[in-house]
Simulated scan of single mutants.
Amino acid sequence: MTTHPIDLFSSALHIHLDGEVRAAERQMTSSDSGAWQVATFHVETDADVHADHWEQHPEAEEAVCCLTGGVRLYFRPTDPDDAEEMVRLPAGHAVIVPRGRWHRLRLDAPSDLMTITLRQGTRLEKRTP
């Protein structure tokens, strides 16, 4: 194996259950590769984080990490009469999104983010006001 630098802003790391780690294309929707994905993003606007959609990962928890900037992570209420729960992530902070929990992001500033999850079964749903 040849060792070389990997640009984490253009590729993702896929970590397979057999211990293999390789650079691969980032998957933003469901993937059946069985690999955990470590993906890093530079985001400038709410559109870059699909703030108008809820996202859910039914097969695994997700670590959402704010490396620079600042974001707000919202959890969809489990009861329709409840309000959204919000967690503010300044630079250097992370939150673990529970398996199967609908969530979305909004930016406080341009940011560098890293997410770690199993993309298998990932779902997106348009947010209604």
Rank of each mutant, 00 (worst) to 15 (best):
M1V: 12
M1F: 04
T2H: 13
H4E: 14
D7P: 00
D7G: 03
L8C: 04
F9Y: 07
S11Y: 08
S11D: 08
S11H: 14
A12Y: 03
H14M: 10
H14V: 01
H14G: 04
H14A: 11
I15R: 10
I15M: 14
D18K: 13
D18M: 10
D18E: 12
D18C: 09
G19H: 08
E20L: 11
E20Q: 15
E20D: 12
V21D: 06
V21A: 06
R22V: 06
R22S: 11
A23W: 07
A23G: 13
A23N: 08
A24H: 09
E25A: 15
E25G: 08
Q27I: 07
M28K: 09
M28T: 11
T29Y: 11
S30T: 13
S31E: 12
D32H: 09
D32S: 15
G34F: 09
W36Y: 12
W36N: 07
W36A: 13
V38S: 11
A39E: 05
A39I: 10
T40P: 00
T40C: 14
F41V: 02
V43D: 07
E44P: 00
E44W: 02
T45I: 07
A47Q: 14
D48H: 06
D48N: 11
V49S: 06
V49W: 11
H50V: 14
H50N: 12
H50K: 15
H50L: 15
A51N: 03
D52F: 03
H53L: 09
Q56T: 15
H57C: 09
P58L: 12
E59L: 09
E59M: 12
A60T: 12
A60N: 07
A60L: 03
E61Q: 15
E61T: 15
E61V: 14
E62G: 02
A63W: 11
V64Y: 08
C65P: 00
C65D: 08
C66G: 04
L67H: 14
T68K: 12
G69M: 10
G69E: 09
V71P: 01
R72Q: 15
L73M: 12
F75G: 03
F75V: 00
F75Q: 10
F75P: 01
P77Q: 13
T78G: 13
T78A: 15
D79Q: 14
D79G: 04
A83L: 14
E85Y: 03
R88F: 02
P90M: 10
A91T: 05
G92C: 07
G92D: 05
H93I: 05
V95E: 07
I96F: 01
I96E: 04
P98G: 10
P98V: 08
R99V: 11
R99M: 11
R101W: 01
W102S: 00
W102E: 03
H103N: 09
R104S: 05
R104F: 01
R106N: 07
L107H: 03
L107D: 02
D108C: 07
D108Y: 02
A109Q: 11
A109M: 02
A109D: 05
P110N: 05
S111E: 04
S111F: 02
S111L: 03
D112I: 08
M114H: 01
M114R: 06
T115H: 01
I116D: 02
R119V: 08
R119S: 03
Q120C: 06
G121E: 05
T122E: 03
R123P: 00
R123D: 05
R123E: 11
L124T: 07
L124Y: 10
K126M: 13
K126T: 14
P129Y: 07
P129N: 10
